[in-house]
Nucleic acid binder design. Structure first.
Length: 274
DNA sequence: AACCAGGTGCGGT
DNA sequence: ACCGCACATGGT
């Protein structure tokens, strides 16, 4: 079965290169192995297609690429907030992926106080050296078995013990998959008990891995944008996140992605009194 | 040479 | 609950 991703609503450069760090592009073809599923996006007339072997694979990738979300419904937020309307118009083809929670967890622990180029480099070396193949994300068991020293040699720095310890907790039964059935608040408070996971990383895991689309991660860029356009003044990042969830509601996190990418790419000015 | 990058942990108010 | 600082690493 072929999964078609039409160019009108799917842009790999916006979606795969920016939200997940182990997809690699080669002559127009994007590939990665996610939770054991082999993904290969091939360009075609309509945009891209992904060939799947059976029903189960089809269902996995359909969910991964968020094909069941109503992106038209986002326009409602744009009516109330012009900057969101602008962001939606500037980035057609941006979607919010539904990654395996474990993969989002590891990638975003690595993301802390780091830049995207190096995050990608680190995640890819983790795939290569621990996952057992190019772009093949490692299992919790595999990561838990790696020594801290080896993780440091890969360049993980002070995050090395966080990664190892978090992997160990997941192997010991931390109910990562079950968190999506809990409320945003409940899942959040459990996630931040993991080492290397604070509010921001937990929010990313919830948004990208647990389908908690109300989650509103606040990093340096979103903080700047919110100060410029939403009068958040001297609010802490935690308070800005609460504010975002409150005023934007169930799709706050989807809006956050559009705002984040616009801010980071300089598509929306941030100097408005910030 | 400082400062920054999709922050977090920790110890002190 | 809030605040300030250290923290690995690589790029300007």
């Amino acid at each position: 079965m072929k999964l078609i991703l039409k160019r009108e609503w799917f842009d790999p450069a916006l979606t795969l290169d920016e939200q997940v760090f182990h997809w690699v592009e080669n002559q127009g073809v994007y590939s990665a192995v996610c939770a054991g599923h082999v993904g290969r996006l091939v360009p075609c007339v309509q945009g891209y297609y992904l060939e799947t072997q059976d029903e189960q694979e089809y269902v996995f990738w359909r969910a991964y690429f968020d094909l069941d979300r109503d992106y038209e419904a986002l326009a409602a937020m744009g009516e109330k907030y012009p900057v969101i309307r602008q962001a939606l118009a500037l980035l057609p083809g941006l979607r919010v992926l539904n990654q395996p929670p474990w993969e989002a967890l590891v990638a975003f622990i690595i993301s802390a106080n780091n830049n995207t180029g190096r995050i990608r480099k680190l995640v890819l070396s983790l795939c290569r050296e621990v996952g057992g193949g190019e772009s093949c994300f490692p299992t919790p068991e595999a990561l838990a078995a790696v020594s801290e020293e080896r993780l440091r040699q890969m360049g993980m720095g002070y995050r090395a013990p966080f990664l190892k310890e978090t992997a160990r907790k997941v192997v010991e039964g931390f109910p990562l998959e079950e968190l999506s059935a809990l409320s945003y608040e409940e899942a959040h408070s459990r996630l931040i008990t993991l080492p290397g996971v604070g509010d921001k990383v937990a929010d990313c895991v919830q948004l990208f891995g647990l389908r908690h689309s109300v989650s509103f991660p606040v990093d340096v860029w979103v903080e700047r944008l919110m100060r410029s356009w939403f009068a958040t003044g001297t609010m802490s990042r935690k308070a800005i996140g609460e504010h975002g969830r409150q005023i934007l509601g169930k799709n706050a996190g989807v809006a956050q992605q559009y705002l984040f990418h616009c801010a980071r790419r300089g598509l929306i000015p941030l100097d408005k009194g910030a």
